[in-house]
Amino acid sequence: MKPIKQYAYLFDTTRCIDCRACMIACTVENQVPMNDSYIWVAGKDVIGEYPNLKRATMPYHCMHCLEPSCASACIVGAWQKREDGPVVYDDTKCIGCRYCMNACPFDVPHFEWDKGIAGGALITKCQMCKQRLEVGQEPACVQTCPTGALTFGERQELIAEAHKRINTHPTRYINHVYGETENGGTSYLILSHVPFKELGLPEIAPTPVNAVSETVMSGTLPFAFTWGAVLTGVALLVRLRNRGKEIAAAEVIETEKSTEETK
């Protein structure tokens, strides 16, 4: 594969048969332990009542957001959105606080609950097979998919392809490419023939979820200095006033004393 601008996945539910080859390929490629997985099925699969049924599933994994909340939230900056697409992890920095797990609107990151101090408990998630990207290979999940449900490429091109599919088959898909704008845009784009929440995908506005948080955080230092100045000011004013009162009270006593003495 030639080096290209920004990688993304396109997933099409109409092609997915829930075989889970992607999950097994990922587990083998990334040597994921038996009690963890970077990809999983999130929806309920069977929709409707007998005999009017539909099926839809999706291999759920990191969305590789353009504005990742994990990277915004991480106290030590262990998460980074790379220019070429993946949200990657620096496991030398992580302190295991798990704020990223709370911050992620897709509930993606997992934690190594079974590792003690010696083992070094870390956060785990899909990193777009960055080791494969380096040698010009697609992520393992995409590479193995027997039906072409998962494809990979440049983000804008995939968005165009997704819209093309919607236009070519107007009654087939929900008229929306999930991930085009959600959370400020993600690098995991989804076409679906059922409402996205049936796949386990949350409803998220185009504004990144970290927007308010980052705004507030950027105001911290200015606020701190301002508040410190205000408090100092108040303390000084209060003391000045109290001092003034003391002086006034002392003068009154002095006056009374001298009045006494002159009598």
């Binding site: 080859a21 097994i24 390929a25 998919c145 027997p146």
Partner: peptide
């Protein structure tokens, strides 16, 4: 790791879950 052989007409570069 196992990957489908693009030159094999049954695989065409892909593998099913059992293959993986």
């Amino acid at each position: 790791k196992l990957e489908g052989n693009p030159e094999h007409a049954h695989a065409r570069g892909n593998l099913c879950p059992r293959g993986q």
